[in-house]
């Protein structure tokens, strides 16, 4: 009883933004998030390199896993969104997908329990890479002038309307897209971590109560926490997939032919 009370007093309640800043691991420059990102990169490198070190025609288990991830993105995303021209973006999209999926899943791995993507900095960088890529692809394919004209100017409109419409199109195509791409991933991971905090920490706070009824009903909080952990796994996969599909779709608008 007294031990749990101590636990509950140590836990920050209610959960706040402060909970997203764990103490630095070693010195001010090595944070938990930095370590997690390096671990994710290392895991992905090791996974894909060992899976494809000795490729065989009939794949082994590891090779089969790597090939099905790549196949899912190549056929289900790249070819589906961009046609045959999109195959060359499949490696980038696969790396993006596996990195986001792995870092998202860190949010429910015991011991880590927070996703780097719940800090806006990481989604911003990921979205910026996709943003620069689809701008560069569009400019290289059509030339700067044509690309801007295609994305900003609506054909078949009396010319005074363009003063009104061009700023709107600019905001929609060049500001809204990367911002929503980054914010969607960030908000989902942030909210997911907050939900898990509310149920687990809240469960401990209820357990430390003097009232027997509240103490017993903390069981429901822990049950919901377990349920929400599975829900977060679903969200992690879904958000990684959505991020990649939207990136591929923006790329496809850059690649689209004149019509």
């Amino acid at each position: 009883m007294s031990e749990e009370l101590v636990v509950a007093q140590d836990l920050p309640w209610p959960p706040s933004v402060e909970d997203f800043f764990p103490p630095p691991v070693a010195g001010p420059w090595v944070t938990k998030f930095g370590v997690m990102v390096w671990v994710a990169v290392a895991l992905l490198l090791v996974f894909f390199l060992t899976a494809y070190r000795k490729p065989t025609l009939v794949p082994g288990r590891l090779q089969w896993m790597a090939e099905s991830v790549y196949g899912l993105i190549r056929d289900g995303v790249a070819r589906d969104q961009m046609g045959e021209a999109g195959i060359r973006f499949a490696p980038y999209l696969t790396v993006l997908f596996s990195f986001i999926l792995l870092t998202n899943l860190f949010g429910i791995v015991p011991g880590l329990q927070i996703s780097p993507n719940s800090h806006i900095a990481f989604p911003i960088v990921l979205a910026a890479i996709s943003y620069v890529l689809y701008l560069a692809v569009g400019i290289r394919k059509h030339g700067l002038g044509t690309y801007l004209k295609r994305s900003l100017i609506l054909p078949g409109v009396p010319w005074p309307m363009h003063f009104l419409l061009v700023p709107i199109e600019f905001l929609q195509n060049f500001v809204n897209r990367p911002v929503t791409l980054a914010v969607r991933l960030f908000a989902n991971m942030f909210a997911g971590h907050l939900i898990l905090l509310v149920f687990t920490v809240g469960g401990f706070v209820m357990l430390a109560s003097d009232n027997l009824f509240i103490k017993v009903s903390s069981v429901s909080a822990f049950l919901l926490a377990i349920l929400m952990a599975f829900f977060e796994a679903l969200v992690a996969i879904l958000q990684a997939y959505v991020f990649v599909v939207l990136s591929a779709n923006y790329l496809s608008t850059s690649l689209a032919e004149e019509h």
Binding site: P167, I168, Q172, V175
Partner: peptide, 9 residues
């Protein structure tokens, strides 16, 4: 998106 861009912008 268009409405936010239009009205906000």
């Amino acid at each position: 998106g268009y409405l936010i861009a239009g009205i906000g912008g």
